[in-house]
């Protein structure tokens, strides 16, 4: 699975997985996230517009990212999750710890 990485205003690093995030693909996602964290990224925006499906494996990567940036006063936002992902976020209670935004434009 491919993960597109970009940045906005030098602060936000945007990671956009392209496709299902499940046990089969999650390694690619995790690798990309760890790579950005290692490069010093503290503000991560997960663009989920191209993710039709995500399971707990994807949630785990999101949690890893959050745990990594919080001590650095950083943050993780989820951008444009599709309905299935939105639902899993709700069911799992992750909506309580992640903020969701409609697009990357509002990020500063």
């Amino acid at each position: 699975m491919q993960v597109e990485v970009s940045s906005i205003g030098g602060k936000w690093t945007i990671l956009a997985p392209q496709g299902r995030v499940d046990a089969h693909t999650v390694d690619d996602f995790e690798t990309a996230v760890r790579k950005e964290l290692a490069a010093g990224a503290r503000w991560l925006a997960m663009d989920l517009a191209s993710v039709p499906y995500m399971n707990s494996a994807g949630l785990r990567v999101l949690l890893i990212a959050l745990k990594a940036v919080r001590p650095l006063d950083g943050g993780v936002v989820l951008v444009r999750p599709q309905p299935q992902v939105q639902e899993i976020l709700e069911i799992s209670g992750f909506m309580n710890i992640f903020s969701v935004v409609a697009d990357t434009d509002g990020l500063s």
Binding site: S56, A57, R60, L63, I64, L66, K67, G93, F94, I97
Partner: peptide, 12 residues
Amino acid sequence: HATPDQPVGGIG
């Protein structure tokens, strides 16, 4: 009940 400090397992 999700918290940022929780362990990463068991969610599935």
